[in-house]
Nucleic acid binder design. Sequence first.
RNA 1: GCCCCUGUGGCGGAAUUGGUAGACGCGACAGACUCAAAAUCUGUUGUCCUUAGGGCGUGCCUGUUCGAGUCAGGCCAGGGGCACCA
Length: 852
Amino acid sequence: MSRYNAKTVEAKWQAVWAEQRSFEVEANLTLPKYYVLEMFPYPSGRIHIGHVRNYTMGDVVARYKKAQGFNVLHPMGWDAFGLPAENAARDKGVHPADWTYANIAHMRDELKAMGLSLDWSKEIATCHPGYYGHQQKLFLDFFEKGLVYRKESWVNWDPVDMTVLANEQVIDGKGWRSGAVVEKRKLDQWMFRISDYSEDLLDSLEKLDRWPDRVRLMQQNWIGRSQGARISFEIIGEDKPLEIYTTRPDTLFGASFMAVSADHPLTQRLAKDNPAIKDFVAECHRMGTSEEAIEKAEKKGVDTGLEVAHPFIPGKTLPVYVANFVLMDYGTGAIFGCPAHDQRDLDFARKYGLEVTPVVAPDNADPEIGDTAYTGPGKIINSDFLNGMEVEAAKAEIIRRLEEMGKGTAKINYRLRDWGLSRQRYWGCPIPMIHCVKCGTMPEREENLPVKLPDDVTFDKPGNPLDHHPTWKHVKCPGCGGDATRETDTMDTFVDSSWYFARFCSPRADQPVEREKVDYWLPVDQYIGGIEHAILHLLYSRFYSRAMKVTGWSDIDEPFAGLFTQGMVTHETYRSEKGEWLLPEEVGHNDAGDLVELISGKPVTIGGIEKMSKSKKNVVDPGAIIDKFGADAARWYVLSDSPPDRDMEWTDAGATGAWRFVQRLHRFILEHIEAACPVHAPEPEEFPEAAKNLRKSAHKTVAKVTENIENLHFNNAIARIYEFMNALGDFKSDGTEGAKWALREGMEIIVNLVAPMMPHLAEELWQMLGHDTILVETRWPQAIKALTVEDKVTMAVQVKGKLRATIEVALDEQAKIVEEIALAQKSVQNAIGENTIRKIIVVPNRIVNVVI
RNA sequence: GCCCCUGUGGCGGAAUUGGUAGACGCGACAGACUCAAAAUCUGUUGUCCUUAGGGCGUGCCUGUUCGAGUCAGGCCAGGGGCACCA
């Protein structure tokens, strides 16, 4: 018998779909639309299992929705700007564009081999001027509406390579290539005013009811709305007060010091003639720019010698410190320290011998403070007029008093900062601005868009190639026509991915988007991607859709109506003797069974199981899997083994099981087609008992699989299909018309249910079943309700919560009768023994619990 | 450090959302077919008590409940994000 040949069959159906343009769609107001989108990939060179998982999930949804009669938009593109292309240019001497387009070509072939229902006619790449030119247009529109501005902000500076480093390029405070200690440096940078939308971005999370709760929670915490107070402290001997922000004004009587940021104007002024402060500020600037680095550093400070007056305790003064844990970007860049009720303040106070006065007493607990600050609720003590109040009441009262005195006010603060989009790199979208000595910073004229990247660049010098290009930046000012220079910074690649979903609606339009198209297709109905994008990418995209509304490009606030965050695909990490990351295929076992580097035979260290990432090289090439077992088996495997929202560790064993199922289903249809009735035969009047049961099983499966796919529980859908396959295998036909008909029905149903996951095999089987239509144009099966309900149920009988028997009763049987049957069981009687029955709980159709 | 998530057999996981823990798959073991292997098929497979029948069992500890994998509180372990990786 011929075995199923995945390779030829898959190629055959891919050709058919391409020829029939099965997945190319146009906006059509007479049809209900459904927009399925998976996060587009970075063209790193080859697809990895994470992509296979992500795109298979999206494909199942897309094919399922199409079978449900929706007009489905399912596009694909490339997040093609970014650092790795420049690294390749430096390391291998390849031009970033050549490297990127070669990678795209290879990965496109790989994706096509997966048989995804993508509309390839809508493919876009963000590094193409046809894309980024429109991004520049959007930037200019945003600039005109005041959504973009320029501000000095901090970057990681490598003093040896004379270049700006990304956070991931800073390892233990040192540059990854030079090894030099990284400094913070201030540069003029372009910013988006995302913080203007803090409140809206926060409040609108409520409406995103098809987003995972955890993502909404993460965004909520990220935006970080806090209700607090601004308080001004009089600095002794100074005219201007010190403004602070606090979320705990109720602890003001426990204040023992003030702390200001190293970047606070007061600090900068004092540093001029105080070497100790100057040195300390310099030390702070040697810390990285990441919040993690700042939080993990030892809490340190330096006394400025200044003192402030306590607003409520006459004669009491507090010393002012410059401290490394106070952020200039948050609040006012200055705080009061209340060590008893804030851990950082406590660490700091212990280090510098500052006083620790508890002012909140937890109920029935000793307010003695050791090494742990008390941050819980309680009653206020040691605080004059606040004594005896609960924390919340005390906050309100002290703000009222401060307002009376004109020394403070209630203030809502957000943690969310404006989005710095400037990057000092070549391989990104040029910022279309021009600096003129006379006119200042001017937007480029629209007719000059796109501002294209120059091709002739070199990466042999440190710094930004655009900056040392001989001619590119020298232009005439669009205002006065005089000599001027182009902005040489390019945009953060998050900008590219903040509107690509809108561009897909009209990917070849000569403006960023066409209104009718985005009005029809947006928002994305189901967006699928990694949880690692839970905050930044999704938040930036939400901001972008608001900004595009302000500039008239669309009318939606929220770009993604439904979001699904798939778990990451993880894999062990490997390092060579020298500490370099190694790909799994570079690693193997030697004769002695030790893990070694295959080329050199040198030992390999196994690291943790971590998210697959380019930088750690712990990636698996799925090409080999597809080559060996076919795309259908690979798709089936990534869906079957783990719940889609959880992390999945790649193992080779699972793929074999999927492959076996492909064979089993194919063989079953092949061997049983003769035993089934002809295609489109009319339904007979009578069914033998076994056929009735098969039909019940089939229709229950349809109902469950439909529900599972709706909820994206693909692993459960597959388990149900396996169960039905087992039922089909167990079916004994008696040769009657009813049996033949039920067998065909079962076979057709399983082929339909399997189709979104294994589309090639399903098409092939559909044809074998005698159909001359193709499955991608076939409607999803409907479960017959009457066949999905049973008239009998099995109920569990517990005595004192322990299972003692199971009983079979009629569906929705009266509680009294159920009790009788339950108590009649011998094992139940044994368990009850001499005890008296106190109560019997009957949960209909589920369980009986006899309480003794 | 801060925020979020996860923890169930040898393994991936299921559990009608508080109601029979371990569906389905992988692996393993035994058998059938075969000269043999592969493939396929059948059966067994949480654990302990030699069996009948029971005991124990969802990271750990406490609690709520007739009943807890599921809810609450406290721990432990692993993972993700922390604003210039994408």
